[in-house]
Design a protein around this nucleic acid. Sequence first.
RNA 1: GGCCCGGUCGUCUAGUGGUUAGGAUGCCGCCCUUUCAAGGCGGAGGUCGCGGGUUCAAGUCCCGUCCGGGCUACCA
Length: 520
Amino acid sequence: MHIGTFRDALFKLLYARHCGGVNVLRIEDTDRNRYSPEAEEEFIETLAWGGIEFDEGPHFGGPYAPYHQSERKALGIYAEYIRILLDKGFAYKAFETSEELEQMRRYQEINKLQTGYFGGSWRDAAAEQVAEAEAAGKPYVIRQRIPRDTTIVIEDAIRGRIEWDSNTVDDPVLIKSDGMPTYHFAAMVDDHLMEISHIMRGEEWIASAPKHAALFDAFGWERPIFVHCPVIAGKDGKKLSKRHGATSVLDYRDLGFLPDALVNFVALIGWAPGGDLELMSRPQMIEHFDISGLQPSSGVWDYDKLKWFNGQYIRAMEPEALLETIIEYVDRPQTFDFWELMACDKDAGQLTSADPTSTLSELKLLRRFVTEEPTYALEAIKLEQPRVVTLADFGEACAFFFEDDDKLPMDEKAVDKWLTLPHVPELFQRLIEAFTSMAQRPSDQPLAAEACESLVRAFAESHGMEKLGPVVHPIRVALTGKTAGPGLFELMSVLGPERIISRLNRAGKLAGTPGIPPAK
RNA sequence: GGCCCGGUCGUCUAGUGGUUAGGAUGCCGCCCUUUCAAGGCGGAGGUCGCGGGUUCAAGUCCCGUCCGGGCUACCA
């Protein structure tokens, strides 16, 4: 599901909840070429993941079932209503072939006329002529007879009054030659039948709104309130599309975004609660949501701000809940399918700064530890929680906790800079000795960060060092292979004496320091 | 081409005739600090698309203009 569609669905939910109304899902599957069960499944999956709840719909039941338009068509619902329009003269049969329509359009374009079907040869055809064509078995569509020489006015809840010279509105197809209704017909009939109060949809529908209004008028039905929401655009101002990055909601799930963060962010494109409120819980959004806060102008998708929201939501989570969420994330096969795809995609750089191939292997490592050693993994996650943006980031951030001691990748520059310092061999040796004796007297207590700190500080002091950096950095590089990460003492406490000893040994050799005895 | 919609820092936005045009993000700096983040503090960034009016007073009202976008299917 496209981000824009998702945002609209969210607005509908928020508004329904705000008003104590009913949110209904209807599957508009009248185009047999476009519809697929897989697409519908993806739709439902997206809605469920995003917490977009429905009170009525094909998978939820309700008083106006069925909720698939194809099923409603089979029931003869649309046939019944098109009959009424035909009888009242608000619709007519048109027998043009697609070639004839194509020719007409070309003629209009060449002569710089308005394009569209404004009657052709059938709007005003004699009854006998129509009967003749029908008897001859010619295929036909049923078109809406838009009133001429008048003004069609709609009252849009966001933009106010919008009007059209009805002579500029062409006659849309209501029933296709295969008997299926178009959106223009089916959605309006259903909206009436299902007692829909608000038509909330994307701005791209404004152009067809006069047709829809005229249809309600033709039936003598009360018009719902039209709410045309602004579109979400890419950085270049054009409709958000693949080349702007990911447009599918599920891609953001697989990228490691939290549904609540995405929802919070997306709600704020085209809507503002007024004042300075930005970070909002779902109940807060419902409380504040109102059509008067909707923006008429389109918004641009700002990936950076989405990332900020996600970071905020990750930091706000209880570590235990976060661990659960991460487990869910790495247990989902789609996560790995997605990163496989990313690894092959040249444009993946728009979405991640990290190399997808390494993300993939780091996520596998994360999956192993999170299920096999959840207690250890939890401690690692706690330390990385404040410095991560997406769930996927935990892969890289935590990798050094999980990687085998002898396979830990070492940043070359960091090795050159910190492991070559003259005091490093002695430092490592002292630490190895200290931790070895600790390891030989195993206790139930985990290694305390304070103990590590005093050890390191003692070394610095005994060497007359005023700053801790020259001591801390070599140890960090030895233990993590990197120069960035959580506080050294916290990280040592989580790693534990065994891993520390083994990594110090390895790093010592890497630095070309001879003479360090084996740890055990 | 025609018809429609839109236009406040790069971006999301507050603002409904009187504000030093506010917040958020991003960017930069400082603090914190063993690194990176997070967090705290601060800074740069807006002639409210442009031009006319109305008014003592206009981002806010009116007209024009420019630019951007959407639609222009037997798709939704």
